[in-house]
Amino acid sequence: MTTLMERICMRGNLPLRILVAILVVIAVLFICIPLVALLLRVPQTLLFASLQDPVVLDALFLSLVTASISMVIVIGFGTPIAYINARCQYPGKKIIDTITDLPVVLPPAVAGLALLMAFGRRGLVGQYLNLMGIDIAFTTIAVIIAQVFVASPFYIRQARTSFASINRVYEHAARTLGASPLTTFFSITVPLAINGILSGAVMTFARALGEFGATIMFAGNLQGKTQTMPLAIYGALQGDMDASLALAVILVFISFAVIIVIKILTEKEEAVP
């Protein structure tokens, strides 16, 4: 906590403060105005009616479940990559690092097509899965795969940065005190990197929740099975715009609530210097 006097002494010159204040206000308004416009446009009655529509409930449930599973999978597979790339030197590291970023560059619809060409029933891998009787395209699993593919860079990038920012001496200290590499990782590295890990996980969750292009291509659009909120919103947009906007508002609020809850739950950890 800074005292009033500290704030008076440290606040810098007036023109700079005004400039910074203007930039901050513009940035915040830029994000808020479209959201407010969206909210004002949607009749409240429609919002509540939408919440009882089975199409909406199915989509909401499917979105939350798949985005959560995707987040867990990304954490499980992304953490080792993030840690190795933050800590180790090995030939081809830059390439691996770049590859993990690529899904961000790929337009989502292309990502979905690529997934079809890989795991579809005539795909590179999918044709063999198909022989074993495994069919992934147009299933809920395809929804999760699409989300994982598109959203993983957000976590890996963030986790890698926070791992890299931890002074190795803490890990060394733990090792000399008798902790195995794995124990060290979970008792020292993860707690010290937890802010980055969590914010990366939240970003991944949010991106998975909003995933549209790759999902529509790879998983298709079928209510209760592969129709997530963004798909339902896009679908409704073609017919009843108000209904679609109501869905969008619900999605924004649910995402907001989920992210806020995660932030509050981890508030304590942020006290660490």
């Binding site: 001496v169 060394h172 200290a173 000399t176 195995s180 020292i188 010290l192 950890e269 660490v272």
Partner: peptide
């Protein structure tokens, strides 16, 4: 012998106390 099995008591220069 791996570091964790050597039983050395290492006091680092900046102490490396676990900040969390």
């Amino acid at each position: 012998i791996p570091a964790e099995s050597r039983g050395t008591g290492y006091v680092f220069q900046d102490y490396a106390l676990f900040p969390h």
